[in-house]
Structures are given as C-alpha cells and as structure tokens.
Design a protein around this nucleic acid. Structure first.
Lengths: 236, 236
DNA sequence: CGGGACGTTGACGGTCGTCAAAATTAGTGG
DNA sequence: CCACTAATTTTGACGACCGTCAACGTCCCG
C-alpha cells in the first residue's frame, strides 16, 4: 500500500460522536482504536472503493464529501447517496463480500478504514458497539425508504426542495450554517440522485430564485425562505 | 395477548434455510429456538406492525405475503417493498426503537416473532448468526439501491418488466413456477411501489399482452417470453 | 488566455398523470 | 345460493410535466 495513510486516536477525533457509539469507557475507546486500520486521504475524483471490489472494510468519513453510485448492465447510472463527515459507507458490500457501488470523493477527503471482520469481533464483546452497528444499518434502510418516497411520488420542485432541506439540516448538525451551503456535486449528479435530468435541476433552481426562495451563485446556495421550501415538500 | 399463537421448532421449519444461517450445529439451532417468541397468524388486510409502534421484534415470514409502506405527512403513500416467505421484516425499526412503516398482510400469513434484544444477545455468542444478521440488513440496503435505480431512471415498461422478473425469480427460488404467478397486490399497490399510477400499470400490462409477452387474467400472470422482458429491462 | 467542463435557457415532443365512464370481479348479507 | 354493493380494473381523451436537443454563457484551471 503506497496510499497516504496516517493515524489519529478515536479519542482525539472530532467525529467520534457521529461515527462511534457514545458512552464508551476509556478502555473500550482504546480497543476500538485497535480496530481502526488507518486513516487515508482520498483526493477529489478518486474512488474509495468500486463496484465488484472485494469487501473488507467499512469507511468512516472524517472530512470531505462522497457520492455512491451504481451502474446497471446497460450503462444507466444512479447516484444512491451523498455522504459527509461522520457517516459510514460500504455497508452494501457485506451481503456478498463485494461492493456493489462506487464511492467517489467529490472533494478532498480523509477516511478511517474499519476492517469489518474486526468490527464483528469487537462488537461481540462491546454491546454498545454491536447495537451501534445495527443502528447505522437500520438508519441507512430508513433513509432509502425516504428516497423511494421522493422518487416515487414527488414532482421536480418537491424533490429539489427536499434535497436542499436535507443537505442544510445535515450540514447544520455539523456546525455549519443552516441557510448557506456549497454544493459539492454537479447538477447532473443532483439530477441522478433525484431521478431528474440536469436541465430540470437547473430550471428548478431558476424558479426557486425567481420566487425569492433561494439565492444561487453556481454551487453556492443561500436559503432565504426555509418555510417556503418546507411548504413545497409538504403541500397542505 | 389474545393473538392466535403457536410454536414449531426451527429445526422442523421448511423456511429455515432462508431465514436462518446455514451450517448451525444442533445445539445452536436449539438456542435459536429459544429466541423465537411465538409464531402468529396474520389475516389478510391486518397489519403486523405499524408506523410509530414501539420496535421490539423482527418478523420472519413463514407463509403469506406482505407489503411495507410509508406515509408522508401530507398523506402521500409509498409501498417500499413486497415480502414473501423466508424474508425478514421490521429492520427499519432498529434505529429509533420505533417502526417507521406499516407491514400489511396481502394474504393470510404466518410469521415468527423474533425478539430483537435476544437476537443481539445470541449473536454475540453465535458468530454465524451475527454475520447472518449483518447480511440480511446489507441485502436490504442493496435491494433498495436497485429500487432507486428503477425509480430514478426507468420508464414504465421497464419498471413493470423488472418487477415481474424479480417476483418470478423469487417465487421460483421457493419452488414455484417461474412463468406462472399470482399477484397478491392490486394495480394501485404495484403502481405505488413502482412510482406509477394504477392506470399506467393497467395500460402497460395490456401492452405486454398485445405483444404476446405475458398472459394476464386479473391477478394471474403467465410469462410467455422471459427474454423479451429482460430485453425491455436491459435494452442494448 | 484558451480550452473544456459545467450551467442556463428555449423550443418542442413524449410519457405518464388526471379525469371520467364503463366493465368486471369480489365481498356481504339476506 | 343469489342479489346487491363496493372495490378493482380497463380504456379513452386530454393535458402537464419533464426529457430531449440545441445553442449559448460562464467558470475554472492549466
């Protein structure tokens, strides 16, 4: 491995509360530290893992921003999610010991590689870790249910509004502004995630701007009227 | 509880290979038996659990057919999946200790209630059970990725073709015919799952019949040309 | 400063949703 | 067992929404 690797103790990691169970004892934290193989930098555009690759690790995002996407046999592409600091990716690989999607960094990122076999070992002894792993997987299932609702029953405006609100909320919970966000992905990637074409994304942004709901300057978005976005998602 | 409950040993259950890890020792099988609370009958139209209900059990389907569906605040409805014998439902409830969807029996069914706390306990000791639980959750995540691809990038014909092939394949792996199937759900429920209106489902069925790809008599469907369906899903 | 990736906007057409009516089936109670 | 009602399905006409194609504009990076 000539990757750029390094190591920081979980106890010193500011993402701890997000990716690890809270309420661990000092001893348990140290044991988890042993599990963590290495931190690694991933440059913008590089893939962390790709479809078909053997599954060995989960990855906790320390900094940066990723997309995961699948490609069907006939070349159709679908972004299945955007992930940011504190989130875990690679869960899809467990079932068949191989990843079924690509994880691509949309900006320079740092990740912790977590050897899954060791996570299973340790979670047999540390109950809170075991439960945490179950929760992370369940959370992903629930998130995808939400995406199915969005893709199955919402119109373009509703999808984009829901997308912006979700992104803003996640950034806010990480200490960023809840009204100002920088999109790390292209219009095409947003469209792929939302089941729309890039032109529709662009047009819908323009309509939001006309209506004074957001300001858009390239990938910089400022939400001027959160309530209006919520009303679009949840019309009465 | 005045539910209609009963109990059959896992060792005697013909669904064992589907819902439980293979290669368990006799002793391990017996311990899993202790975990299983009770089998229960669920009549057509009844719900096994519903949105908001406290999460305590996973459910293994022994016989019958279920749908799971979520409802958004403004009343939008989305079927998130159809489940049949051998499949596990309720995984969405883990993350917040409450179910986030309804599970409704589409035909009379029998299920095994699996107290999740006991599953966690036992899977700390039985490695193969632990790994099996992880695989089941990962499989659900991968399945949902597939649905996202379908909802995000396929046209009506492609969605329905993919749906029929998936159903036929799952029934076939359970020993049923791979060309003859009985739909347990309405056109509206198919439409909700596929992100289409019931009229579109009906029309698309009619087109398949015109093209000699399937025979449809109400909910009885006979697939006459599997290859044609595959070509629709995966155009070259 | 120049080229390529990305984004915006317009015109037009197709797919699917909406509304409506009729046909068929399933369910219920007498 | 039959009659009656409710539920489901089919089919048609029409329109809205979004995709397609095309041209142009903008930004970023070497």
């Amino acid at each position: 491995m000539n990757h750029d690797t390094f190591k920081i103790a979980c106890a010193n990691c500011n993402m701890r509360e997000l990716c690890m169970p809270i309420g661990l004892s000092q001893e348990e934290l140290e044991r988890i530290d042993d599990v963590i193989g290495a931190r690694r930098k991933v440059k913008r555009g590089e893939t962390l893992f790709h479809n078909g690759e053997k599954f060995t690790h989960l990855y906790a995002i320390r900094t940066g921003f990723f997309k995961t996407c699948i490609t069907s046999e006939d070349g159709r592409d679908q972004v299945t999610g955007f992930q940011m600091a504190g989130e875990i990716i690679g869960l899809d690989g467990i079932v068949n010991d191989a990843h079924t999607c690509d994880a691509v960094a949309l900006e320079d990122a740092e990740i912790c590689a977590l050897p899954f076999a060791q996570i299973e070992n340790l979670s047999r002894e540390v109950t809170s870790l075991q439960h945490h792993v179950h929760k992370i997987m369940s959370r992903e299932i629930v998130r995808e249910h939400g995406v199915m609702l969005l893709l199955g029953s919402m119109r373009a405006e509703e999808r984009l509004a829901a997308f912006l609100l979700n992104l803003a909320q996640r950034l806010h919970s990480r200490g960023f502004s809840q009204s100002e966000l920088v999109l790390r992905m292209t219009r095409e990637e947003i469209g792929s995630y939302l089941g729309l074409k890039l032109e529709t994304i662009s047009r819908t942004f323009s309509r939001f701007v006309e209506d004074g709901i957001v300001e858009v300057k390239q990938r910089h978005v400022r939400i001027l009227n959160t309530q209006a976005l919520q009303d679009i998602v949840n019309p009465r």
